[in-house]
Amino acid sequence: MSFYSKKVMDHFMNPRNVGYIDHPDGVGQVGNPICGDMMTFYIKVHNNRIIDVKFQTFGCAAAIAVSSMASEMVLGKTLDEVQKLTNEDVAQALDGLPKNKIHCSNLGANALHKAIQNYKLKMKNKKEI
């Protein structure tokens, strides 16, 4: 009896990996508070794998569930694997999202891609120094 799937409600009510990482290897942010959704992902990388991930999200139930599910899906994965992850994959893992939420709230994969970009940029800068 819900507007959302059971999985969405579970991840919304009990979100995994909430918080932030002190001295993260990469940070990725998408959305803005005026639109209603803003997600920030923090990652820790070791041997090209995501060894820790945390998120903070201002947004609707869908946005929070997407963030939580995306964080679970990438933990322990290689950066290449994470870069192949799409927003649709995350929505599917949640047993789907309502039509009107597909575009605005389903940005978890994008935020993680940005975090990886941010990590790679940092690595590149380190090498140059």
Binding site: F3, M9, F12, M13, C35, G36, D37, F58, G59, C60, A61, A62, A63, I64, K101, C104, S105
Partner: peptide, 23 residues
């Protein structure tokens, strides 16, 4: 916080309210 999230959290506790948020 965003209104829809608040509406749904309260709903799970039996408190029924509405929101003017876009979401």
């Amino acid at each position: 916080v965003e209104g829809e999230s608040l509406v749904l959290l309260l709903d799970a506790l039996g408190i029924i309210v509405s929101s003017g948020s876009a979401c």
